[in-house]
């Protein structure tokens, strides 16, 4: 029985280490100048398109939704961490060229479900039957948002959007779920936002949006 409990302790330690994602320090990549011409060209390319896009600034910790260069919405980022895929216990090195380039075709995981109500018009206006007034749902009721989700871009980058509260609640079950889906993303950037902003971003993120990650956005 003693051997068995020893094995159990090792197993539990392995499981908890795997589930927690073994936090380590990540070497800061070489600074990318806000005037780096490749990153600037990517920002110009996005600003000239007729669509919304995201800019993640790692230095000031700022995620902003933009259109034609105009800041449309700011999401305050409380913490940023970089998740690299791991082959057994060794982190796989990721090419540093993930900053300053355009990531496109975002998809939400889990996807946002949109259900529509079909209105049945009354046969005539002078109907005798009084229908009780219906209080329309709030955005939170209409589109329930998870407290943790991913915005996955073509090419292997994913933003993992979470809140401090969700981090505290994350259990073993979620870690195993992550393990099941692991390998889909070459690189994950985990952004911790205030809980209300996590939900707001999930509900209103324009479909198929593009992203650029920079140290600092160009001064405009």
């Amino acid at each position: 029985m003693r051997r068995c409990s020893g094995l159990g302790s090792v197993a539990l330690a392995l499981t908890l280490c795997g589930a927690g994602g073994c936090s380590r320090s990540v070497d800061a990549p070489a600074p990318l100048s806000p005037l780096d011409s490749t990153a600037l060209a990517a920002q110009v390319e996005l600003a000239e398109q007729d669509s919304f896009y995201l800019i993640l600034e790692l230095g000031p910790k700022r995620l902003s939704l933009r259109y034609h260069g105009a800041v449309v919405r700011d999401y305050p980022v409380e913490a940023i961490s970089l998740g690299r895929p791991r082959a057994l216990v060794r982190a796989v090195e990721v090419d540093g060229a993930w900053r300053g380039r355009v990531w496109r075709e975002a998809t939400l995981d889990p996807p946002l479900e949109v259900s529509r109500t079909v209105i049945e018009p009354p046969a005539s206006a002078d109907t005798e039957v009084e229908t009780p007034p219906v209080i329309p749902p709030t955005p939170e009721e209409r589109f329930p948002a998870p407290d943790r989700f991913r915005v996955r871009f073509a090419g292997g980058l994913a933003l993992e959007i979470t809140s401090r509260e969700a981090g505290r609640r994350a259990g073993l079950g979620e870690a195993f779920g992550n393990a099941w889906n692991a390998g889909q993303d070459g690189l994950r950037i985990r952004l911790q936002l205030p809980a209300a902003d996590v939900g707001a971003l999930y509900r209103s993120l324009p479909a198929g949006i593009s992203l650029i990650v920079v140290d600092r956005a160009a001064p405009v």
Binding site: G21, S23, I80, R84
Partner: peptide, 10 residues
């Protein structure tokens, strides 16, 4: 899970 997770760092 250790083999299929991500290593996160600040």
């Amino acid at each position: 899970s250790m083999g299929a997770q991500y290593t996160y760092g600040a």
